[in-house]
Amino acid sequence: MSDPRQLLGYRAVQEEGLDDWRFFLMKLHARFATGSFVKGLELVTRITDAAEAANHHPDVVLTYPHVDVDLSSHDVGGVTSRDIDLARQISAVAAELGVEAVPREVSTLELGLDVPAADEVAPFWAAVLGYDVRARWPEVFDPGGRNNTLWFQTSPGATGEVQQRFHLDIVVPREVAEERLQEALAAGGTLVTDGHAPAFWVLADRHGNKVCICTADGREPDEDA
């Protein structure tokens, strides 16, 4: 990992043994259970010091019981050795402060829209939402990192005057996915298909509305391969 601009894929990140972190959607994600706002602010301050020293800056959200941290190299659009190094430093800081990592709690919610051709509608959605178009993926995203990404799934039948074809993707750590699946089935859902597992499982509620439980396993490209 000598090249700090080399994108790392799912398998390479897994081999780094970052127990506090989970990798999906081209980012490292961590949650630290601080238990108080004061302890959270102390952790954020220490993260800031480490980030400034490395000249590499994460996205950090401070709430009363948690600090959420996302790491990616924005200049190349994914995870690199810079993120691995800073993740290790942040974990060390948290351990020093007695703050526990709770990686099973991290997740990201995406919105998916079935369309005949993404390039025909992406500019519209970017304009109406105030988003940017992602060059490498059929999606538009909030450049401020606050709001949910909207991605476009190619569906040739989604033409004419049909009901709007949105669905949700909930992206979770690999070890959580099948537990979440079973909980959803117990709550009245049905399994539409597991043909793409462990990348994703498609479920439906009692009315047929679909949702995907997703992981990085088999979904993220192995850029380092």
Rank of each mutant, 00 (worst) to 15 (best):
D119E: 00
C212A: 12
V44T: 08
L62C: 05
S91H: 11
D68T: 04
A101S: 14
A177G: 08
P173N: 00
I213T: 04
S91P: 12
Y64E: 13
V162W: 10
R88K: 03
R180W: 00
Y10V: 01
N148T: 13
Q182A: 07
P198V: 02
G195L: 09
V202S: 07
E15A: 00
P143H: 02
A30S: 09
D205I: 07
S155W: 03
V121E: 01
A117D: 12
V140E: 03
A186M: 09
I170E: 06
A158F: 08
E52Q: 15
T149D: 04
A216E: 00
T190R: 15
A216W: 02
V67T: 05
L7K: 02
F152E: 09
D132R: 10
S73I: 03
Q153I: 05
F32S: 08
P143Y: 01
V211F: 15
T48R: 14
A204M: 10
Q182E: 09
Q182G: 02
V99S: 04
F24S: 01
L28A: 15
W125R: 05
H167W: 12
T159G: 07
D3K: 08
V106T: 09
A30P: 07
W201G: 10
R180E: 04
G98H: 13
R165H: 09
D205V: 13
L129E: 03
R11T: 01
R82E: 13
L111I: 09
L18N: 00
P173Y: 03
V13L: 00
P221R: 02
G145I: 09
E183C: 06
T193W: 09
L7P: 00
M1P: 06
W201V: 05
T154C: 12
V106E: 02
V44Y: 05
L86I: 04
D169C: 12
C214S: 06
L43T: 08
F37Y: 12
V69E: 03
F24D: 00
